[in-house]
């Protein structure tokens, strides 16, 4: 019976359908906000859902010369990865389905799976745009991953735990946004880099490399990757809200905090021109990583002094 419960937990709640629905809703809010900022009306509320259903019902073209197992398998692995990550975060302000000490590391690893998979998917197809897109995806992965990790390390250190729920509980009493502002900003921008949102969308820059790594994907595979991105968006927002915005303990707080973050993300998307990949890498390593490292050192020193 326990197995059935676990399967239900994965499929229905809190991961599974609810997460996916949440992801789609957040994609809609994001698109709507960007459209509003661009003085447009924007899509209807069910737009992301219609997009996904349509893609699922569409023919999936297998390009010539690709490894079909990888081609079909990677999207599934990517989505499975982020859905599993959803088990460990306090989604909707509820306690995570699973929790153990060190689950933060697992969650971060699982979140990177999506990017890794899309990079591999691009490298697997012979298309030139996909190949360049894959190179850029992986380059970007290696540039934001370290600073992003460091930004989650900061709250972990002050909370003295690697368990998401414990950090969440600690953050409930401390708004780390004020004590670690650099970490907060870098984490938010790191999330945008992870999701390849403008201005960090060089890996899928439409005007240069069509759709980057995803150029050859149609139908189901493309739908799963998109869905994965949506889920990653909601998980990323949850993590940042939990760590930096005073923790998550109830659905209302979750909504308010993550939507506030989403508003910031949408604003940043609308505000800037796309960065070149070399500029992105430079920004992360020169500014992002160094600043976060400096703050981290300060945090450790402060913690040592107060202890």
């Amino acid at each position: 019976m326990d197995i059935v419960k676990d399967i239900l937990a994965i499929l229905i709640f809190p991961a599974g359908l609810a997460v996916m629905a949440g992801g789609l809703a957040y994609e809609w809010i994001d698109r709507k906000l960007v459209a509003q900022l661009q003085n447009r009306i924007g899509p209807r509320w069910f737009q992301p859902a219609a997009d996904i259903v349509k893609l699922l019902a569409k023919e999936e073209v297998l390009p010539e010369g690709v490894d079909s197992r990888l081609f079909y398998g990677l999207p599934v692995v990517a989505l499975a990865g982020v859905l599993t990550a959803a088990l460990y975060v306090p989604l909707f302000g509820l306690a995570p389905a699973h929790s153990f000490s060190g689950d933060l590391i697992v969650a971060i690893y699982l979140l990177s799976m999506l990017t890794l998979c899309s990079g591999l998917a691009g490298a697997n197809t012979n298309d030139r745009f996909s190949l360049i897109g894959a190179t850029r995806t992986l380059t970007q992965l290696f540039s934001y991953e370290a600073p992003f990790l460091l930004t989650l390390l900061g709250p972990a250190i002050v909370a003295g735990s690697w368990q998401i729920s414990e950090i969440n509980a600690y953050a409930g009493g401390h708004w780390l946004l004020f004590t670690q502002p650099v970490g907060f900003v870098v984490a938010l921008i790191g999330l945008m880099g992870k999701l390849e949102l403008p201005p960090f969308d060089a890996p899928e820059a439409e005007t240069e490399i069509v759709a980057g790594a995803m150029t050859e994907y149609s139908g189901r595979g493309w739908a799963l990757f998109r869905l994965g991105k949506n889920v990653e968006l909601i998980i990323g927002l949850t993590l940042i809200a939990a760590f930096y915005l005073g923790g998550l303990s109830d659905p209302l707080g979750f909504l308010l905090k993550t939507l506030a973050l989403l508003l910031a993300v949408a604003g940043l998307q609308a505000l800037f021109a796309r960065l070149r990949i070399d500029q992105t890498v430079g920004l992360w390593w020169r500014a992002g990583a160094l600043l976060v490292l400096a703050q981290l050192l300060a945090t450790i020193v402060l913690k040592g002094m107060t202890a």
Partner: peptide, 22 residues
């Protein structure tokens, strides 16, 4: 696709890759 007409209202998006288009 620009603000006065905004085709995204109807869900229409201009795609770059023929693989993504209907």
């Amino acid at each position: 696709v620009t603000p006065r007409y905004d085709l995204e209202r109807f869900g229409v998006k201009l795609q770059g890759s023929p693989r993504h288009a209907d």
